[in-house]
Amino acid sequence: MKDRVFISYRRADTGPTAARLRDALEEHFPGQIFLDIENIAAGQDFVTVIENNLSIAAVLVVVIGRQWLEGSTSGTKLGDANDYVTLELLSAARLNIPLLPVVVDGAAMPHASFLPSGLASVLRSNAIEIRHSSFRRDCEPLTEYLYARLGVAPPTPLERFVEAIGAKLSFGMNRFKFDDRTRGFHAIISVIVALGATLATIDSWLPAASAERELLLLDTYDAVSLHILGVYTGFIGKNSRKHRKLAVTALAVTLTSLLALLTKLTMTPPGQLVF
């Protein structure tokens, strides 16, 4: 599955900015951002790693600074057979990977007439401009594009609220972030909880053992707690790309069961409730 974001850049041109961009995107897409200086270990073949990561890339983000056309410190420039940026661009074109130019540090998108033959048609996409003074705000259009391209639902207000609480309780550990895997876990939990909530509702409708005991406070508390947990996990799980239908079904069952439980509570005479 192609779910990697590959960042192409020149270290001598935009190295610090590319690293900062990688950190910003990693917050939204943990484990899906590839940057050579971060992801290529010592002793690994550079070209092989580049090719392998491009084969699973959903998009190639091309970071363009003022010196991007002029080349690297090794003496190669755009269009040279041994230029790594050229290799990345041509490989992406061969693999039909969409390219998204990102111009930084006051640079401008190079005119097609300045691009080597074979690359002019590669960089046709509208560029996104990112400035140091408004970095976070300028990254928002890029983040929105990547969410759509990767088929991942952006965080909902509920998820952002939970993430904010998790950030305060992390105590220096890795911050809790919602991704498709986490949402998948919530989807599965919502199904389990939905079954438990349904059983609790059915139990509340069964004839009581005695006239004075129709529903105990503990039974009500447990049943309502199950329904709240089911609604919470269902609303988060429904954003899972793989388990969306499962979570939505579980959420519908949970809400229907909650309605039945509330109906039972309203129908029960106050004198038959033991608190």
Rank of each mutant, 00 (worst) to 15 (best):
M1S: 15
M1W: 12
K2S: 15
D3H: 13
R11H: 08
E27R: 12
F34E: 13
I37H: 09
N39Y: 03
A42R: 08
Q44T: 12
V47Q: 13
T48C: 06
N53P: 06
A57W: 01
A58K: 14
V59A: 13
V62Y: 08
I64F: 05
S72Y: 04
G75M: 09
Y84T: 11
P98C: 02
P101L: 11
D105M: 13
A108M: 07
M109K: 02
P110S: 07
H111S: 11
A112K: 08
F114K: 09
F114L: 14
A120P: 10
I128W: 07
R136H: 14
T143V: 15
E144Y: 04
A148M: 01
V162M: 14
A167P: 12
K168E: 15
L169T: 14
M173Q: 14
R175L: 15
K177G: 05
T182K: 05
H186T: 05
I188V: 13
A197I: 02
S204W: 01
L206G: 01
A208V: 03
R213M: 06
R213T: 13
L216W: 12
T220V: 09
D222Y: 03
Y232N: 02
I236N: 00
K238M: 15
K238E: 15
K242L: 14
L246M: 09
A250Q: 03
L255I: 15
T256R: 10
L258Y: 05
M267C: 10
P270A: 15
